[in-house]
């Protein structure tokens, strides 16, 4: 564990708490992509299968349980409790275009051709693009509630913090994880447009609105 990774994990944790807070307080999942949330459930379940057979640390164990549990809870809230507030007609990104290529990439790029390693690779690739249905939806509506933009910012910043963590680990421990690094840089890259609007508008107290 190092400072950058801890900041990244705390940012990830914060993003989920902001998301649940938004759903609970506004009693609505308006502006949220169900597809993106469903992809996160797939990401966490395929990556954290090792919970059942490998012990890393108490921190690791608790965080994994939290990510699986909270993503399932979010999906439940969106699907059942606040279902009427979700508008599927604007959540139209085709996730087949994400899941298919990620599965193929995982079969090609993995550290060992075993079920658990291929699923791990798959989860890394899928996570890097899982935000696309959400960003696509944002693009279509052209605006977002401020709380939703805080959620997206925290979620984007989380992976960005992992980048200095990998550089730090390379110099201190000599470990390199090329799959996670390439996917992590791509994932952070997808947020650049969003970050630009977030930092120039939302952080200055303005509403999140995309130029027409």
């Amino acid at each position: 564990m190092n400072f950058f990774r801890l900041l990244g994990d705390l940012s990830h944790l914060a993003s989920i708490l902001i998301l649940l807070h938004k759903i609970k307080t506004t009693r609505s999942c308006r502006g949220l992509s169900f597809k993106t949330q469903a992809l996160y459930v797939a990401v966490f379940i395929t990556r954290y299968l090792d919970l059942t057979y490998r012990w890393v640390s108490l921190y690791n164990f608790v965080m994994k349980l939290f990510f699986i549990g909270s993503s399932c809870a979010t999906l439940y809230l969106m699907r059942y409790k606040y279902c009427p507030t979700h508008d599927p007609s604007i959540d139209t990104f085709k996730i087949e275009y994400l899941v298919g290529p990620c599965a193929i990439l995982a079969l090609i790029f993995n550290y060992k051709f075993s079920v658990s390693e291929v699923l791990w690779s798959f989860s890394i690739f899928l996570e890097s693009v899982a935000i696309l249905p959400q960003l696509f939806m944002l693009q279509r509506t052209g605006e977002a509630e401020t709380i939703t933009t805080h959620y997206l910012a925290a979620l984007g910043i989380y992976r960005a913090f992992y980048i200095p963590n990998w550089i730090y680990r390379y110099f201190t421990e000599g470990v390199v994880d090329p799959i996670a690094i390439v996917a992590g840089i791509a994932q952070t890259g997808l947020y650049l447009d969003f970050f630009y609007v977030y930092f120039t508008k939302v952080m200055q107290g303005e509403k999140f609105e995309l130029p027409a």
Binding site: R5, H12, N60, F67, A180
Partner: peptide, 10 residues
């Protein structure tokens, strides 16, 4: 296992 497949990150 080589170092890079430790998967000790989240």
């Amino acid at each position: 296992l080589p170092h890079f497949i430790q998967h000790d990150e989240l």
